[in-house]
Amino acid sequence: MAHFFWTVLLPAAVLDLLLGDPHWMPHPVRWMGRTISVLERLLRRLFPKTPAGERGAGIVLALALPILFGGGSALILWGLGQVSPWLSWVVQLWFTYQLLAARSLQKESMAVCYPLKKHDLDGARQAVSRIVGRDTQALDETGVAKAAVETVAENTCDGVTAPLIFLFLGGLPAGMAYKAVSTLDSMVGYKNEKYRWFGWASARLDDVLNFIPARLSGLLMCIGAALLPGCSGRHAWKIFWRDRRKHASPNSAHTEAACAGALEVQLAGDASYFGKVVHKPTLGDPIRPVEPEDIPRACWLMYATAALFLLLFAGLSIWL
């Protein structure tokens, strides 16, 4: 654990900070997405088209993907280690770096911020539509900025800090298994007619794996807010404890509530999906409206939270 942190995880975090996620590179998440699509078609043909049959097929998928990618990566690393420990290290470093998404989140959210600052609302709507699932055509400038801030805040956990935790605890195989579950949830974990039963197991497994990371991430984000200029640690703490359970998901609101408090804005609330308005509770107090500058502030909060996790892991590594 300690050796992996110093030789792989910490350098991988630096690589993510420097390189981000170039779109031309092969990426394990894209491999996972293609595998999910193939397995979904296969399992839907093999299992009965009933709620029980679809749930059974979804359970098989939810177990198969993390075993395939987690176990497969462990097997590959073992084989590479037999050839050369250096080759095994290079592969571990490369794929560990690709499981972290901090720089990618910053890049995609700042692509929303830049047109907003130029009052290019159409460009900002188009940019934010690439990172959110809601309808964006009718959003005003405040709505676009709020959607980008919410994306950074919510994905701080499943895109950055939760992968850090699983990688620290179990190396690349655990990180791959976690990312497989997270990708499953993003692709099939919906409560609509198509995935209500088929995606049930994937959504529940994602809830279980993120239960502790979401809460730790919210707590450390509050500490990060106290260290950053332009953020309120006191208000982050207040809103985190008050609003962190105000979401249909048991985990999604923790970092979002901490971020809303830190920025002293109100996030979440009603949103439109595929032309249908979904009523959701708000997080935070509307002390001031969300503005474009809140997007880079949310990114700094994300980085501060990740840095605090790395400091915690460094301390644990030294102690161990």
Rank of each mutant, 00 (worst) to 15 (best):
W6K: 06
T7W: 04
L9N: 06
L9D: 03
P11T: 05
L19Q: 01
L19Y: 00
D21T: 07
P26Y: 01
W31C: 06
G33F: 00
T35A: 14
T35P: 01
L43G: 06
P48I: 03
K49L: 10
A52N: 08
A52T: 06
A52R: 15
G53V: 07
G56Q: 08
L61E: 03
L65Q: 09
L68E: 08
L77T: 06
W78L: 13
W78T: 12
L80K: 14
V83W: 12
S84A: 08
W94F: 14
W94R: 10
L99R: 07
L100C: 05
A101Q: 04
A102D: 07
S104L: 11
E108K: 05
E108M: 05
M110T: 08
A111R: 15
P115S: 11
P115R: 11
K117A: 07
H119R: 15
H119C: 13
L121E: 09
G123E: 09
G123T: 11
Q126P: 00
T136A: 11
Q137I: 02
A138Q: 15
K146T: 06
T151S: 10
N155D: 05
N155Q: 05
T156C: 07
P163R: 02
F166V: 04
L167I: 02
L169M: 13
G170K: 04
G171P: 04
G171W: 02
G171H: 02
L172P: 04
P173N: 06
P173Y: 05
A174H: 06
A174S: 11
M176G: 07
M176P: 08
Y178E: 04
K179T: 05
G189Q: 04
N192G: 13
K194M: 08
F198W: 06
W200Q: 12
R204S: 08
D207R: 10
L209C: 12
F211G: 10
A214G: 12
G218C: 14
G218D: 13
L219K: 10
C222E: 07
G224K: 08
G230W: 01
R234V: 12
I239H: 03
W241D: 11
R244N: 09
K246W: 03
H247Q: 09
A248Q: 14
S249N: 04
N251R: 05
N251I: 03
A253R: 06
A253I: 08
T255W: 02
T255V: 03
E256C: 03
E256W: 03
A258H: 03
C259Q: 01
A262K: 03
E264I: 00
E264M: 14
A268M: 09
G269F: 00
S272L: 01
H279V: 15
P281I: 01
T282A: 14
L283I: 13
L283A: 13
D285T: 15
R288C: 08
R288E: 07
E291W: 07
E291P: 00
D294L: 03
D294T: 04
A298T: 00
C299M: 01
Y303F: 14
T305A: 02
F309S: 09
F313Q: 12
F313V: 12
G315H: 07
S317Q: 13
S317K: 14
W319L: 15
L320I: 13
